[in-house]
């Protein structure tokens, strides 16, 4: 009697455990199913490398190259913000901060992570964009540059907390060995600690990048929204996420436009999948290197 109950409970948990697998598979299935009509209608090459995104024109053009390039441009720009600030903050917290400073700084960085992206978008629209507009004297502050700055700030906590984790895994004995050879703290940091945590730090950058590429509301509000191939950092652009968010409301269900938006979703999904797989592979290698794997 009792063992039947145990077995039933175990079975129940086993079934429920597969939910995330089911959802992931569901997402993949839905994205493919809804994208295939678009790709079969337009042909893959024209879709991926078409230079014009005019979904509501007659005849409509569905080339996602401008959107992909916009995502790329904004993401690369954001890296210039989040990589130095994120890694620098992590190094400060891990190596220089006193115990009491750490107790304050770590929760503060986490707080930065918990701010909803709509707030960042709001902040970008009202403060960053007008500021950039004045600073560079450009027609509009809603451009790739502003979006990069705001996205970069958003990704700081991701980069900082994962880097900090990686740094804290570096065994103290490494540092002690370096100190005992007469190296100062900076030398120890740059020559021993950072190399030892290098793969963890690169994981943090990849995951930060993945977050940036997938971020929606901020770019929707700050990037300007022009679906043309970006020529400079100060042009308004329309990244992939913003395109889906802005246009899905108007696209008629089942239309080519609708399917194309799903296809963009699929591209986004695949990009983040690659980033995550990369991060996973690096961090696994890293755990083995430091002997942390079970």
């Amino acid at each position: 009697m009792r063992s039947y109950k145990e077995l039933a409970i175990k079975m129940l948990f086993t079934v429920l455990a597969f939910s995330s697998l089911v959802f992931l598979a569901g997402i993949v299935f839905v994205l493919f199913k809804e994208s295939i009509p678009a790709i079969s209608e337009i042909n893959l090459f024209d879709f991926l490398f078409g230079k014009y995104w005019y979904p509501t024109f007659e005849p409509a053009e569905f080339g996602v190259l401008p959107l992909i390039l916009a995502s790329l441009e904004v993401a690369v720009g954001a890296l210039f913000v989040c990589v130095p600030l994120g890694i620098g903050s992590a190094l400060y917290v891990n190596e220089l901060a006193s115990a009491s400073q750490k107790q304050i700084l770590k929760p503060l960085i986490e707080t930065l992570a918990s701010i909803p992206s709509i707030i960042y978008g709001f902040f970008g629209m009202l403060i960053v964009a007008p500021f950039i507009q004045k600073l560079f004297n450009i027609p509009t502050g809603l451009c790739a540059f502003s979006a990069s700055v705001v996205l970069g700030v958003m990704a700081i906590p991701t980069v900082a907390s994962i880097s900090e984790d990686a740094l804290s895994f570096v065994p103290n004995s490494f540092k002690e060995a370096s100190y005992s050879l007469g190296a100062n703290r900076w030398q120890t940091l740059t020559k021993v600690v950072i190399p030892a945590a290098a793969s963890g730090i690169s994981t943090s950058v990849i995951l930060g990048m993945s977050r940036i590429v997938g971020e929606t509301m901020t770019v929707l509000m700050v990037s300007g929204g022009a679906a043309v191939i970006p020529k400079s950092f100060f042009d308004p652009v329309r990244p992939m996420t913003a395109t889906i968010a802005a246009e899905m409301g108007e696209a008629a269900v089942g239309s080519a436009h609708y399917h194309c938006l799903f296809a963009i979703g699929l591209i986004l999904f695949l990009i983040t999948l690659v980033f995550n797989a990369l991060a996973e592979a690096i961090s696994r290698k890293y755990r083995i290197k430091l002997g942390l794997d079970r």
């Binding site: 992931l24 995951l207 997938g214 968010a245 999904f269 983040t272 999948l273």
Partner: peptide, 8 residues
């Protein structure tokens, strides 16, 4: 699943 963009 954790890495999937929210818009997706």
């Amino acid at each position: 699943l954790a890495g999937v963009p929210s818009v997706v």
